[in-house]
């Protein structure tokens, strides 16, 4: 445990915290990668995912692509881009966009698909246009899953952004690289703690967001079966996350 104390000591050493190349600056870089990559991925993946979910077309291909992209080792991808398009921020950014796409894509179409088909039918029967069905029914009801996809993408990128230093792209991995080179275990552990805490904080924020974006009314009406002990209380479609209760 002394190693962890050394790690904390390293973090809170004022010499490491501020200034260019300090911890705060590296955190800013890490977050820029994260939100930059997820934003770009969102522009590509969310409309595509909504379209797939709404029309039901191309979903098998989407599932296959998502699975395939998932199997790609991100370190290898990053390095191949670094060798191909040169070092700097572009290669990591491109890697992270590719990394985030499967989560966002499947979050979007799974969200739309999870909406009760009878609800969608009813909306259509009342005379909504396809666009209205998508924006007024499927999108709001599918929002928790869509945000879940974004959450998953963000967390994946924030964790992986540590690798950006392989393409000389900065971010918190720089400390890990230094620590590995100089065998400075305090720095290694310190940097690891920072990355982990950053990921946990983002996870917390998104967990909260996801809970806030569950449409009202969908959470209500939990049914408890009293007849036998073995039957668990049934959640209702779109009920919020059970964690932390």
């Amino acid at each position: 445990m002394d190693l962890f104390l050394d790690g904390f000591a390293w973090i809170f050493d004022p010499a490491h915290l501020s200034g260019p190349g300090g911890i705060w600056a590296r955190i800013a870089e890490q977050l820029s990668y994260t939100f930059g990559a997820v934003a770009i991925a969102a522009i590509i993946a969310i409309p595509l995912g909504l379209w797939i979910g709404h029309t039901g077309r191309g979903r098998d291909i989407a599932v296959l692509c998502s699975g395939g992209l998932r199997a790609l080792p991100s370190l290898g991808l990053l390095i191949i881009f670094a060798l191909g398009i040169g070092i700097g921020f572009k290669a990591p950014l491109l890697t992270f966009v590719i990394l985030a796409i499967p989560s966002l894509l499947s979050g979007a179409y799974a969200g739309v698909e999870a909406v009760d088909k009878r609800t969608v039918d009813a909306a259509r029967a009342q005379g909504m246009t396809e666009w209205q069905v998508l924006t007024k029914v499927e999108l709001p009801l599918g929002l928790p899953l869509l945000i879940g996809g974004i959450r998953s993408g963000v967390l994946q990128v924030v964790a992986t952004a540590t690798l950006a230093y392989f393409a000389s792209g900065g971010a918190l991995g720089v400390f890990i690289n230094d620590g590995l080179k100089t065998r400075d275990y305090a720095e290694l552990i310190g940097a690891s703690i920072v990355v982990t805490v950053l990921a946990l904080v983002l996870e917390g924020i998104f967990a909260l967001l996801q809970r806030l974006f569950v449409p009202r009314g969908v959470t209500a009406g939990q049914v408890t079966e009293v007849r036998s002990r073995s039957v668990r209380p049934r959640a209702v479609v779109g009920s919020p996350i059970q964690e932390g209760k």
């Binding site: 499967p102 989560s103 899953l145 967390l155 994946q156 992986t160 009920s239």
Partner: peptide, 20 residues
């Protein structure tokens, strides 16, 4: 697939966590 990721989080899908 939506949830699994290297160091990412698992999406909470109520449809799956709900037996009914």
């Amino acid at each position: 697939i939506a949830g699994a990721s290297a160091g990412g989080s698992v999406v909470d899908d109520p449809a799956v966590s709900d037996p009914s």
